[in-house]
Amino acid sequence: MLSTQYNGAPGQREIGTQEFIEVLASTDLQARLPGGVLLAQGNGVIKKGTVLGKVTATGKFVPYKASASDGSQSAICILDNNQDTTLTDIGASAWIAGIFDSSKLTGIDSAAKTALKLCYFV
């Protein structure tokens, strides 16, 4: 379709939906990691609410994995928006403090809860 068919306005497009998931149980007492994080390429779409660890060798963040031995076995923060790392490293923001709904977090376990000292879980 040509844009002239709609007097210069964009033409018809497919309508999509987006699911909004709130991982914060309260908007009080929240803080983000200053400067954000650099998510490592190759982890696909990382969902909001994913617990992140930092790979020691690269300084890049990946989803936390308790059984890892590359540094990502230590929970550092929680991602605050979906990010697609399929093709490239990408900057993102992440929480280091807040009150979170545990049932809506990805990768949370007792060790992560202990490591995330400024976070409270309900």
Rank of each mutant, 00 (worst) to 15 (best):
4 T>A: 11
77 C>K: 03
13 R>K: 14
30 Q>W: 09
44 G>F: 10
92 A>W: 12
79 L>P: 00
36 G>I: 03
6 Y>I: 02
90 I>M: 15
37 V>P: 00
18 Q>T: 12
84 D>G: 05
33 L>D: 01
46 I>K: 00
11 G>H: 01
111 A>R: 08
119 C>E: 10
72 S>I: 01
84 D>Q: 11
5 Q>Y: 13
108 I>V: 10
92 A>R: 08
29 L>E: 12
122 V>D: 14
5 Q>K: 14
73 Q>F: 02
52 L>T: 11
60 K>N: 04
97 A>C: 07
73 Q>W: 00
63 P>K: 06
115 A>R: 11
39 L>K: 01
3 S>P: 00
69 S>V: 10
62 V>H: 01
83 Q>F: 07
70 D>F: 05
46 I>C: 04
46 I>Q: 06
110 S>K: 01
39 L>W: 09
33 L>I: 12
36 G>S: 04
50 T>W: 06
27 T>M: 10
16 G>Y: 15
12 Q>R: 07
3 S>D: 14
46 I>Y: 02
78 I>Y: 10
100 F>K: 05
106 T>V: 11
84 D>A: 06
121 F>D: 04
27 T>L: 10
90 I>S: 13
51 V>T: 01
27 T>N: 15
81 N>I: 07
14 E>T: 15
57 A>T: 12
82 N>C: 08
108 I>Q: 03
87 L>P: 00
32 R>W: 00
34 P>Q: 08
70 D>I: 11
77 C>F: 04
35 G>C: 08
21 I>P: 00
8 G>E: 04
62 V>A: 12
105 L>G: 06
109 D>R: 04
113 K>E: 13
118 L>P: 00
114 T>H: 11
103 S>N: 11
37 V>K: 02
119 C>Y: 07
108 I>S: 00
38 L>G: 01
23 V>N: 10
19 E>K: 13
92 A>K: 05
63 P>V: 08
57 A>S: 13
23 V>H: 11
57 A>E: 06
60 K>H: 12
72 S>W: 06
73 Q>M: 03
19 E>I: 13
96 I>N: 02
119 C>N: 02
71 G>K: 09
81 N>R: 13
6 Y>C: 08
111 A>N: 12
55 V>C: 12
108 I>A: 03
68 A>S: 14
19 E>N: 15
41 Q>L: 10
2 L>C: 02
71 G>S: 06
115 A>T: 02
61 F>S: 08
3 S>W: 11
102 S>Q: 12
122 V>N: 15
29 L>A: 06
70 D>H: 07
10 P>Y: 12
79 L>T: 07
26 S>E: 13
116 L>C: 03
72 S>C: 04
102 S>I: 01
46 I>W: 07
111 A>Y: 04
48 K>W: 00
25 A>K: 08
4 T>W: 08
56 T>K: 08
70 D>Q: 07
113 K>H: 00
48 K>H: 07
23 V>L: 03
86 T>R: 09
14 E>S: 14
79 L>W: 07
121 F>M: 05
101 D>A: 14
97 A>H: 01
43 N>C: 07
8 G>Y: 09
122 V>F: 11
45 V>S: 04
2 L>M: 02
72 S>E: 03
